[in-house]
């Protein structure tokens, strides 16, 4: 089990790098767009659609990692209560597994919508980038999120020690 987890952890560096590059490009492009527009009267026409795509990349690349490292925004008001009853772990297991399963339906739908966009030939306005590619990417990201959340929940239940080191 442990080697697989280590492998997953190493592999998770790749989407992080992808997200960071997307964000850096987004920053640099916005900067250049303003300069080009104001000084040279020549804005980047495709800036809007590229911004959209870069945002989808940066948000969804890291979603699986955020989802399995307690990164989602949650209300921790009852933490002490669960802790006192020694129910924290059981609660976390349930939350991870249930959340992961819950994503099964959206994954299917995002996929259907992407395939539909492909069938209709939807593209972006200036660069004619097919929009289903973004849909596929989001489907993949949410599907991986679902799987790793379920896996995290199960590991927390049956092999909590394998998760003890920081991700």
């Amino acid at each position: 089990m442990t080697p697989i987890i280590q492998l997953v952890r190493r592999a998770s560096a790749l989407p992080v790098i992808v997200a960071c590059i997307a964000l850096f490009i987004l920053m640099a492009m916005t900067f250049c767009d303003v300069i080009l527009r104001s000084v040279f009267n020549a804005p980047i026409e495709a800036a809007t659609e590229l911004t959209r795509i870069l945002m989808a990349i940066l948000v969804f690349s890291v979603l699986p990692i955020v989802s399995t490292t307690n990164g989602h925004i949650a209300v921790d008001l009852t933490d002490g209560f669960f802790h006192r009853l020694h129910l924290s772990r059981a609660r976390d297991v349930v939350i991870y597994v249930v959340s992961g399963i819950m994503l099964f339906w959206p994954v299917q739908r995002v996929w259907v919508l992407a395939e539909r966009a492909r069938d209709y030939g939807d593209v972006t306005e200036y660069l004619s980038i097919p929009t289903y590619l973004i849909g596929w990417f989001i489907t993949l990201s949410v599907a991986i999120t679902a799987l790793v959340m379920i896996a995290t929940g199960l590991l927390k239940a049956f092999a909590p020690n394998t998760l003890s080191e920081p991700m």
């Binding site: 992080v16 997200a19 960071c20 964000l23 850096f24 940066l58 948000v59 969804f60 690349s61 890291v62 979603l63 990692i65 955020v66 989802s67 990164g71 989602h72 925004i73």
Partner: peptide, 13 residues
Amino acid sequence: LKETCFTASALFA
């Protein structure tokens, strides 16, 4: 960059 992406991802979710 990494911290920004993580925060943004949680916010968008």
